[in-house]
Each structure stands twice: as structure tokens, then as C-alpha cells.
Design a protein around this nucleic acid. Structure first.
Length: 437
RNA sequence: GCCCCCAUCGUCUAGAGGCCCAGGACACCAGGUUCUCAUCCUGGGAACAUCGGUUCGAAUCCGGUUGGGGGCGCCA
């Protein structure tokens, strides 16, 4: 029997990383087993489901390359099948009508639990059991005639021939009901695997308040989908050896449910960022440039007047300082003359005694250079420092702050080479004017 | 309140009775390189929640305790 898994989100908002991880595991498991991974949109809650949320799900999955093997099934279109199943259960005495709780809302349909102790094997948690006394009958069709989640979920899993249900921990208790439903409907129950939650530093469910929590957040921040996929795959699972940087193909090859952790995992944004940096380094130059350009354009920093290879040269100089695409924005001074001055840097490097004199001297020398290569500007500044008997750093720092507004950045002389002589000298003059007094 | 689950460095984890006075990664600290930052190199601190049992031997098996989490809807 070929493995068929499914990701079944309810489109009521953004896609949370917990749900995304469930999607990843479903996808990896199906691919690993040579089976199919399906998508079912559980949009039966008409109040909360929105087309925008459906779109968010589709986009998130596409971004990560988690393609489904069959067209998505919209649960809202399956009401007739759900109701037919309820009729069938009613006819066979496995369900009954009642005014539950005497609320006066009218009669709903309740599923009759078998009245025996129940158990099932969870691929992650092991054998789980529940005594009959704790298993109450439950509503499968509301008094307004609409099917309830449990019924719809099971009926659709049967229709989609799902063999493995890989979902969040919060469904563990529901599983007893679902297994009973499968049995009553005469279908074999699938295998179940319940994933522990992703928690925050306090051990509580990771949420929006803890930082980026939705797929769109990571995308907007400039994370690479492959890095997020790798990180999330490793949050609660490991291949068993010491490797952590794993390609999509390697993940598919190595993934097994047996190695999924049964305890909650804490989201670590710092490690994600490190991992993203690793992927960023390995990224083909053209792709990195395209993504960085998009960020610059979005922030109004892109300048068509700059040479075609300019961005490439900037990234060459910046090297591994760009861990996220959005990091390029911190080096905005490469792209605009209207760069901000960091107050602390100005205080420390320009207001220092002798700093402005050094800057003025450097400006004169730089204005006169005929060769403005990194080697030439460095030699010129070293010669100046030596001649004045000052430390090299006392000359480097004022220049850096003058041309970039900040105390941190790439190798100064490579930075100057990219900026070019005209802009360098002009910026130094502007800075002297601004802080000269 | 009732039911269920979980418990190795700060974090993610390796570990399925002796290979473990517990390994890797991120983070952190110190040193080196250096014009700052980042990178890189070297070194360092850092954990089996607790109590008892089984065993020649326990991080690994069993039980209690403590701590954490989840579930108890005509939501999904």
C-alpha cells in the first residue's frame, strides 16, 4: 500500500510555523516512502475561513517547495458526503439525534462511542489508551445541519485514502474519537503521528508575541526557504548523526517518524539566523543579487544611475556580513548620499581630539590620488599615519564614519574602492562641514 | 477538578544497560588574525530534574515525587 499523507490546515489566518512544520513532516514522510502528500483545506468554519487565508496557505507551501501531489480538496465542497456518512451512521444505529444539553437549539446528531476501552498506536508517542468511561458520545452534525470537524475530517481522510495522519499534539485526544469513527464507517484507521509543540523561551506555545511566527514573517525578513525548511525539519527531529545542514533531498532520504522527538522543542531564532547565513553563502551570486535588489527597491534605496555591476561589487565587499537579504539595508550608505550618521559613532570617532584634522588631511590626500584602488588608498592612509606618528586606527575610524555614517562595516579600503574617488572625497568634505565646528 | 503526554549543556539534539566522569551544533567566554564589524583559527565553561528499585553495571528499564505541556465546545 502506498503511503498517502495530508496537510489539512484551516484557513483562518497566517500559516504558523507549527503548522508549517507539520506540513514539512507530512511532505518529507510521503516523499521518503515514495508516496503522495495531499493538501486539504479545512474551510468548514464559514465565519473564520477567508479566501486570503487560503491564498496564504498556498503561497507558503509554494515558497517552501512543498508541492502537493494532487489538487487540493476543499472541505466546504464535501458537505453532502459528510452528511451522507452521518445518515449512514444514523441508519445503522451508530449515531442518534438528540437535543444535547437541552439547549433548545434543536436536535443535533451524536456519534455513539462503542462503549469499550480504546487504544491506538502513535508512531511518535507509542501506545495510547483511554477507558470507555472517558469516551463520551459527541456531536457530528450540528442542529443547523452542518457537519462537525471530526466527521468531516474522517470522511475526507477515507475519501482521500490517507494512510498516515501526521498532525499537531493538540489532536491526540481527538484521535480516539476518530479511530471509532473509522471503525463505524467500516474503514481501516490510518497510522497516527502526533507532533509535539513548538514553544517559546518560557515553554509556552510559540506565538506572534515571541517574534516571527508566521511563514510570511520569515519571508519578509529575507530568510531563504531552504534554510527555514532545514531549520524546522531539525526542530524536533534529527537524522541521528551530527549533520545539521541538510538539503531537501537529504532530508527526504533521511526522514523517519521514529526519530521525531516526543518532547516539545523551543524555537531558537538565533540558530535559524546562523543557518540562513550558511545557506546565503552557498547561494549562487545571481540569486543573491536579485533578492538584495528587491529589498533595496522596496526601501527606496535602489538607484538606476549606479553601474550595472555595482550591487555585485557591494556584495563582494560585504561578504558574509549579509546573513539575511534584509541585512543589505544596513549597508544603505552604498546606495545613497543621504545616509544617516550613527550618533555614538560620531561621538567616538569624529569628536575625538585630532579626528577632524586627520579627516581633513586624508581628504586632501585622497582628492589628489590618481589611483583609487583599495591598495592605493590604504597605502596613502598608512603613510599619513606614519608621518604624523599616529596609530593607523586613529585615521581609519574617522574616515569610515565620514563615508558611511557608521563605525562598523567591511574593510574600509575595499569600501572606498566601491564608492569611488569622487563620492569618497565629497562625503569626507560634507562630513567635515557637518561636524567641523 | 478530571484525563493524557513530556523531562540530557542556556537552546536544538546524539545516546535504545557497559563504547559516556556523556558527543555535535547554535549561543556564550577567553586568546589569535585584524582598520571596526563579520568571517576564520585555537582553547574554555556548560547537562543526564529528583528519590527509590531492578542489575555485576543505568542517561538508557520500573515506580514515586517535582516541574512543564496538552485536552476536556453544536471551534478546528
Amino acid at each position: 500500500m502506498t503511503v498517502r499523507t495530508r496537510f489539512a490546515p484551516s484557513p483562518t489566518g497566517q500559516v504558523h510555523i507549527g503548522n508549517l512544520r507539520a506540513a514539512i513532516y507530512n511532505w518529507l514522510y510521503a516523499r521518503h516512502a515514495g508516496g503522495q502528500c495531499l493538501l486539504r483545506i479545512e474551510d468548514t468554519d464559514r465565519e473564520r475561513s477567508t479566501p486570503a487565508a487560503v491564498q496564504a496557505v498556498l503561497e507558503a507551501l509554494a515558497w517552501l517547495g512543498l508541492t502537493a501531489d494532487e489538487p487540493p480538496l476543499y472541505q466546504s465542497a464535501r458537505t453532502a458526503a459528510h452528511l451522507a456518512a452521518a445518515e449512514d451512521l444514523l441508519r445503522r444505529g451508530r449515531a442518534y439525534k438528540a437535543d444535547k444539553g437541552g439547549t433548545g437549539q434543536g436536535e443535533c446528531v451524536l456519534f455513539r462511542m462503542p462503549g469499550t476501552d480504546m487504544h491506538f498506536h502513535d508512531e511518535i508517542k507509542g501506545d495510547l489508551a483511554k477507558p470507555a468511561a472517558d469516551l463520551q458520545d459527541f456531536v457530528i452534525v450540528r442542529s443547523n445541519g452542518t457537519p462537525v470537524f471530526h466527521l468531516a475530517n474522517v470522511v475526507d481522510d477515507i475519501a482521500m485514502r490517507v494512510t498516515h495522519v501526521i498532525r499537531g499534539d493538540d489532536h491526540v485526544e481527538n484521535t480516539f474519537r476518530h479511530v471509532a469513527l473509522f471503525q463505524a464507517l467500516g474503514a481501516p484507521a490510518p497510522k497516527y503521528a502526533h507532533l509535539p509543540m513548538i514553544v517559546n523561551a518560557q515553554g509556552k506555545p510559540y506565538s506572534k508575541r515571541d517574534g516571527a511566527a508566521y511563514v510570511g514573517d520569515f519571508r519578509a525578513k529575507g530568510y531563504l526557504p531552504a534554510a527555514l525548511l532545514n531549520y524546522l525539519a531539525l526542530l524536533g527531529w534529527s537524522p541521528g548523526d551530527d549533520r545539521e545542514l541538510l538539503s531537501r533531498d537529504e532530508l527526504v532520504r533521511l526522514f523517519t517518524l521514529e526519530r521525531v522527538q516526543s518532547s516539545p522543542a523551543q524555537m531558537d531564532p538565533v540558530k535559524l539566523q546562523w543557518m540562513n547565513g550558511e545557506y546565503m553563502r552557498a547561494l549562487p551570486r545571481a540569486e543573491r543579487e536579485a533578492a538584495c535588489r528587491a529589498v533595496l527597491e522596496a526601501r527606496g534605496l535602489w538607484n538606476d544611475a549606479l553601474p550595472a555591476d555595482y550591487l555585485g561589487r557591494v556584495l563582494e565587499v560585504l561578504q558574509e556580513r549579509v546573513k539575511l537579504f534584509t541585512d543589505i539595508a544596513a549597508a544603505g550608505y552604498f546606495f545613497t548620499e543621504d545616509y544617516p550618521y550613527d550618533e555614538a559613532a560620531v561621538q567616538k570617532r569624529l569628536r575625538k581630539p585630532g579626528a577632524r584634522e586627520a579627516l581633513a588631511a586624508a581628504r586632501s590626500v585622497y582628492a589628489a590620488l590618481t589611483d583609487f584602488s583599495a591598495a592605493a588608498t590604504e597605502k596613502a592612509l598608512r603613510d599619513l599615519a606614519a608621518a604624523r606618528g599616529a596609530s593607523f586606527g586613529d585615521w581609519v575610524h574617522p574616515v569610515r564614519v565620514a563615508v558611511s555614517g557608521t563605525a562598523i562595516g567591511p574593510s574600509l579600503f575595499h569600501l572606498l574602492e566601491v564608492l569611488g574617488q569622487a563620492r569618497t572625497v565629497q562625503r569626507m568634505a560634507k562630513t567635515l562641514e557637518k561636524f567641523g565646528g
